[in-house]
């Protein structure tokens, strides 16, 4: 289920449009989870540009829960 690209200790969720990613970042930061907005990992078959957020890999469950409670969907 994890849509994340592990890079050292930083993972990322693909979110979607920029404003959604900004909202996701706010939610994570408010939950004391370090987060940055980043460009989406564009793979073959993607619909084009998009945005995601980073989070510490060790905090995936908390991050995912916070986003779910805020109504923000994490995309594959």
């Amino acid at each position: 289920m994890r849509n994340a690209t592990q890079k050292k200790e930083e993972c990322r969720f693909m979110i979607g449009a920029l404003t959604q990613a900004m909202q996701a970042q706010r939610v994570l930061l408010n939950g004391a989870i370090k987060s940055e907005v980043v460009g989406a990992d564009l793979r073959q078959g993607s619909a084009g540009c998009g945005y995601g957020v980073t989070y510490p890999c060790g905090e995936e469950i908390q991050a995912r829960n916070l986003l779910r409670k805020a109504g923000i969907r994490v995309r594959r």
Binding site: G16, A17, L18, A47, G48, C49, G50, Y51
Partner: peptide, 8 residues
């Protein structure tokens, strides 16, 4: 352009 889902 919207900067999102650019291939659609």
């Amino acid at each position: 352009g919207s900067g999102y889902r650019s291939l659609e």
